[in-house]
């Protein structure tokens, strides 16, 4: 069963890291705090007897997503940015906490409980069967169709991302599209970071002006 001491400790970790993630003025710290918050949520899942969900939480939310986030922060050089609005963030957090307390009070006064009733925990194997099994095998409506159309979602995301990022290259207006430009050299080497140290010295401010340089190439 759930040990209340651990439960409250982990909850405290989740909430405090989440608040730090929102209110921190340093982007990198915020991203790492968010990862920690996700990790604590994963621990909560383990405690509640859902190890499969907990493992997914560790792998995806606490593992993959923070890595991509940190990667983006480094790539876009935005770790030097100072975020400006901790005051509004704190105000928002305060408002949300108040709302949550009010809501819990309201629910407890109205007599019904927020604890889910009639819920039976399932194992990961059962979960898979429920999600992908057909009606005949499980007696339930499978989510086979959702599984299939998730591929459309990924396809749209991919095509959209390529279109939006690729278009800063030169496009031949009115005739062909962006995707068809993939083969072309976009920038004549202008944007490539210098491979050798000598090149870096020759263009000392190259790293710092990459966004501006990009704009110029586009223009």
């Amino acid at each position: 069963m759930v040990n209340p001491v651990f439960f409250y400790l982990i909850s405290l970790a989740i909430i405090s890291t989440a608040i730090y993630a929102v209110s921190s003025s340093k982007l990198l710290n915020a991203a790492l705090a968010l990862a920690l918050s996700f990790f604590s949520i994963g621990m909560l899942y383990f405690m509640l007897g859902a190890p499969f969900l907990g493992m997914l939480q560790f792998l995806i939310n606490a593992g993959a997503i923070p890595i991509v986030t940190v990667f983006i922060i480094f790539m876009t050089q935005s770790r030097v940015l100072k975020l400006k609005s901790p005051a509004t963030a704190v105000a928002a957090i305060g408002a949300m906490v108040m709302l949550a307390i009010g809501f819990v009070l309201y629910i407890s006064r109205s007599g019904s409980s927020l604890n889910a009733q009639n819920v039976t925990p399932v194992s990961a194997a059962m979960l898979g069967e429920k999600l992908l099994g057909s009606a005949e095998t499980t007696g339930k409506v499978g989510t086979l169709f959702a599984f299939e159309i998730a591929s459309i979602l990924l396809l749209v995301a991919m095509v959209g991302a390529i279109i939006l990022t690729k278009r800063e290259g030169e496009t031949i207006k009115g005739n062909v599209g962006v995707l068809s430009e993939v083969e072309k050299s976009v920038t004549q080497g202008e944007l490539e970071t210098p491979a050798r140290a000598a090149d870096a010295v020759a263009r000392p401010a190259a790293d710092a002006v990459i966004p501006e340089a990009r704009e110029k190439v586009v223009a």
């Binding site: 396809l155 095509v159 959209g160 496009t171 962006v178």
Partner: peptide, 12 residues
């Protein structure tokens, strides 16, 4: 100009 991919995304 709307690039040709406009129609693809619209249809998706």
């Amino acid at each position: 100009t709307m690039q040709a991919e406009f129609f693809a995304i619209l249809l998706y």
